[in-house]
Write a protein that binds this DNA or RNA. Structure first.
Length: 572
DNA sequence: GCCGTTTTCGGCCCGACTGTTTTCAGTCG
């Protein structure tokens, strides 16, 4: 149970209360508590023990009691009770875009629908469209939403999957005879979505008694064996494929459990060409099994350099390895600048000073603060009259701190006509600007593309933020003509963001590589609303690496003077 | 449920869009 688990429980409680028709302000309080809890700095247990949690705004006695219960027993009685009272299908229905609590309740009460399957039936046979304030378009939209949910089912956002996998790995590493546990599969490849958790267990002996211990492992409710893997389903809902092995075969098993099918097929082809036999339990030269204790050893015998897990997608990495042209992928230590964060001036939870301190702790040389412009009213935004005050705070932080430079940035809205929010003189007061689309996604491909292209003509724009607006598992990217956007960005010297918010990871890694090939400079933006979200950068880095990016492709690898020169270059 | 007092209760964020309506409730960000 960490912060995000507890925050999820609180958010679930809020949704269930809403479905029951509770007092909206009580519901909002649980939602606020969930947000506040997710944003606290440091470890939850420590914050709870020290009493800091109770001091946090938005967290009161009721929340504290739930946190207490979750930390000691892993369960919440309130949540359990609510789940007994509300049909589970109703919470599934809430995840459909366009369906909120009021409509779900209306559907439930007037049509007695309480599962997705029944909802689908009601949408198809016309009952749904006949409800007051519903109609054919609503029914159609709901059918589309059900399809979307089905596709997404079983898929998890990378950071949720990672948290589950790490907890599982810790539990498994305590089993007798287990020496090491490694994350593998799409998680290790840093994919944006993860369906199955794959873990490799290096044990003293891979025998029946180990498998028996796995089956009896804490919380396992169902196990199955097949293809050398043990599938485990845990009480908490996580399902994982475990690959037990010994030290002698660890490299082989880890490599097989990590690469996608295309990567493995290409490796296999190359192994065959080199006279090797590829079997489930290892590589053979004649009848001789080769020792494969590390991935390096496997690549060695196939005659290739080690290939970073992020690249193992079958997108030309084998050819590049053969030619000695694998990229020198960007690493965390290459990053000098932390960009895209929000303070209390808009919808963030920390002050300028707190951000500066956090930036120092994370060894960044500079940190760009970028609050929302007024058009993003729902997020709370930095009003023009408050800009001088924020800038004085930044100047004070710079005067007081040593070792970090805080930059005056902004996340300005790209308005419907392609102009940027704020009057030009206000915008010029900022040292750099991220510009993003937050409203009117419904425009057609041509209109949206023209809107973004026009924004890039503005000389105060430095970076295009979350370019396609997608929300993983809930909203498709909007239909932007990326080729035209990349071409214009390269021509104008506008950088394009990899937004590292785990729900966005936008630009998609497949497009990152195209953008870099088109000559676009890429910027990794955390889009953090609290210092606890600084680690999002690691997810963004994973996407950059999947896009084959080297340090020279990235804007925030550059020293602060070069970063500012990049931002100023286009200004008159 | 939480906050902040006018300190033990009263107030709690809102504008735009959508698909319905024929004036607006519900959803979203």
């Amino acid at each position: 149970m960490d912060k995000s688990d507890v925050a999820r429980v609180l958010a679930q409680i809020a949704a269930l209360l809403e479905l029951k028709g509770e007092n909206p302000f009580r519901i909002r309080a649980y939602q606020a508590a969930a947000r506040a809890l997710a944003a606290i700095p440091g470890d939850l247990r420590a914050a709870h023990a020290s009493g800091a949690l109770g001091e946090t705004s938005g967290i009161g006695p009721a929340t504290l009691e739930i946190v207490d219960e979750l930390l000691t027993s892993g369960r919440s009685r309130m949540l359990d009770d609510l789940q007994d009272q509300v049909p589970p299908g109703l919470t599934d229905m809430l995840r459909i875009s366009g369906l909120g609590v009021a409509k779900v309740r209306q559907i439930h009460e007037s049509l007695h629908v309480d599962s997705l399957a029944e909802l689908e039936e009601a949408a198809r046979d016309g009952r749904l469209a006949r409800l007051p304030r519903f109609g054919p378009r609503t029914a159609e939209k709901i059918l589309k939403g059900i399809t979307f949910l089905r596709q997404a089912s079983g898929q998890r956002l990378a950071h949720h999957a990672r948290a589950e996998a790490v907890a599982l790995a810790q539990m498994l590493s305590r089993l007798t005879g287990v020496r090491e546990v490694h994350l593998a599969g799409s998680l290790r490849r840093h994919c944006e979505l993860v369906r199955d958790l794959d873990l490799v267990l290096v044990a003293e002996r891979d025998d029946e008694s180990l498998h028996a211990r796995l089956r009896e492992a804490a919380g396992a409710v169902e196990t199955a064996r097949g293809g050398g893997a043990v599938s485990l389903r845990l009480e908490a809902g996580a399902a994982a494929d475990l690959y037990p092995c010994t030290r002698d075969t660890a490299g082989w098993v880890l490599l097989r459990a990590t690469g996608n099918d295309a990567h493995l097929a290409a490796l296999r082809e190359r192994a065959a060409a080199g006279g090797l036999r590829w079997e489930d339990d290892g590589l053979y030269r004649g009848d001789q099994a080769l020792p494969l204790p590390s991935e390096q050893a496997v690549y060695d015998v196939i005659g290739l350099p080690w290939i970073a897990p992020e690249l193992r997608e079958g997108h030309g990495e084998i050819e590049a390895a053969v030619a000695g042209r694998l990229p020198r992928l960007v690493e965390r230590d290459d990053l000098r600048g932390f960009l895209h964060c929000h303070t209390g001036y808009s919808d963030g939870t920390n002050t300028v000073r707190e951000w500066a301190d956090a930036g120092i702790a994370q060894r960044y040389a500079y940190l760009g603060i970028t609050d929302h412009s007024p058009a993003t009213a729902f997020a709370g935004s930095l009003q023009p009259e408050h800009v001088p005050q924020q800038h004085r705070e930044i100047d004070a932080a710079n005067a007081a701190q040593s070792g970090i430079r805080v930059l005056k940035g902004v996340e300005a809205d790209i308005l419907e006509d392609g102009s940027l929010d704020y009057a030009p003189d206000v915008r010029r007061a900022f040292e750099f600007a991220i510009a993003s689309v937050h409203t009117r996604f419904g425009m057609d491909r041509h209109g949206l593309t023209e809107r973004v292209l026009r924004a890039m003509d503005d000389p105060t724009m430095t970076i295009l933020g979350h370019p396609t607006g997608r929300l993983l598992l809930s909203r498709d990217p909007f239909p932007l003509d990326l080729d035209r956007v990349f071409a214009r960005a390269a021509e104008r010297g506008v950088a394009i963001e990899i937004n590292a918010d785990p729900q966005r990871l936008d630009l998609d890694w497949r497009d990152v590589r195209r953008a870099a090939a088109a000559g676009v400079t890429i910027s990794i933006g955390a889009d953090a609303h609290g210092t606890a979200q600084m680690s999002h950068v690691d997810l963004g880095l994973g996407i950059a690496r999947k896009g084959w990016l080297e340090p020279q492709h990235l804007l925030n690898v550059r020293p602060v003077d070069e970063f500012l020169a990049f931002a100023r270059r286009r200004r008159p």
